[in-house]
């Protein structure tokens, strides 16, 4: 027996074994399954729970093991004249039908119990709620659906305070189409900030805007709960609407909070679960509690 050769064979065998083990670990980490030997059982339990909830999973769950910190934000304090001017210039001048100068803009403000500020300019009506959400009514009067995309792209590109919004998804019904944009901060989706373009067949439509001013991340980073755990937490509280089966079409990590009438606040990372029927759920990625 050649001992040296035996050693070489053993080295090769263990090297291959170690490669195999490393591969297995990498695969398991990707699936975010904490326990290898319970994997099949775990997956089948999750599938059964999804089925019971009339849900199917049409997206892959992202990798777990991430760390995140609270995001500190303050509400955006819009200058209504500036907002009106920006919308006016882009919406009223569409197709070059009319040329308007800033001096032509007349902003009429009304305060209703200090909760809503109404601002009228031209044929537009803008409502600013106390919490900071803004609604521009009749924004797309006379605009065909075909031209909606171009107009929206122009708005996002040219209006300074809309430039940190990125396309999120689209919801389409027979007579209505809604384009959803979300705020973005340092590569993280900020679901709490939204921009919606709602277009009807009339043709007309509204713009909804809620914007936050991110101040930065909190110092302490923590591990977020794995997507599978978030999915379990979601299934614990989910009730299917009208028992109609639907599917999870998006599962992503971002930041979400309700709209507060506050000076500044911390936003927790959330797992966003979006269903095909348009419902959206946010699961706190630290605590596992449902946020909405």
């Amino acid at each position: 027996m050649d001992l040296s050769r035996a050693k070489t064979v053993l080295i090769a065998a263990f090297f291959i074994l170690n490669l195999f083990l490393l591969y297995q670990i990498w695969v398991e980490d990707g699936r975010d399954n904490p326990v290898l030997f319970g994997q099949k059982e775990e997956v089948s339990r999750l599938e059964a729970a999804l089925q019971q909830a009339n849900l199917s999973l049409e997206t892959t769950l992202p990798r777990g093991g991430m760390r995140a910190a609270y995001l500190v934000v303050m509400p955006w304090q819009p200058d209504l004249e500036e907002v009106a001017l920006n919308f006016w210039q882009l919406l009223a001048n569409k197709d070059g039908e009319e040329t308007l100068l800033p001096d032509d803009l007349q902003v009429i403000r009304e305060n209703n119990d200090h909760n809503i500020t109404i601002c009228r300019f031209g044929s537009y009506e803008m409502l600013l709620l106390k919490e900071g959400s803004l609604l521009l009514r009749h924004a797309f009067r006379g605009l065909t659906r075909e031209k909606l995309g171009i107009t929206v792209d122009e708005l996002i590109k040219r209006v300074p305070f809309l430039q940190d919004f990125v396309y999120d998804y689209k919801a389409e019904e027979e007579e209505k189409v809604v384009l959803y944009y979300r705020q973005d901060y340092e590569g993280f989706p900020l679901y709490a900030g939204y921009l919606q373009f709602s277009h009807q067949e009339e043709p007309d439509g509204d713009i909804y805007l809620y914007r936050l001013e991110p101040l930065g991340f909190a110092e302490q980073q923590r591990e977020v709960i794995p997507p599978s755990t978030a999915l379990w937490r979601f299934l614990e509280t989910y009730t299917a609407r009208d028992e109609v089966p639907t599917a999870i079409v998006e599962f992503s990590l971002g930041y979400y909070s309700e709209e507060y009438d506050a000076q500044r606040w911390e936003i927790a990372p959330v797992w966003r679960i979006r269903l095909r029927n348009g419902e959206i759920y946010y699961i706190n990625a630290f605590t596992g509690y449902r946020e909405n």
């Binding site: 909070s257 507060y260 506050a262 500044r264 911390e266 927790a268 946020e291």
Partner: peptide, 15 residues
């Protein structure tokens, strides 16, 4: 998480 309200109150919530 900490929410600083306009009236000076501080609100803490875990959801």
């Amino acid at each position: 998480r900490r929410i600083e309200e306009r009236d000076g109150a501080i609100y803490f919530t875990d959801g």
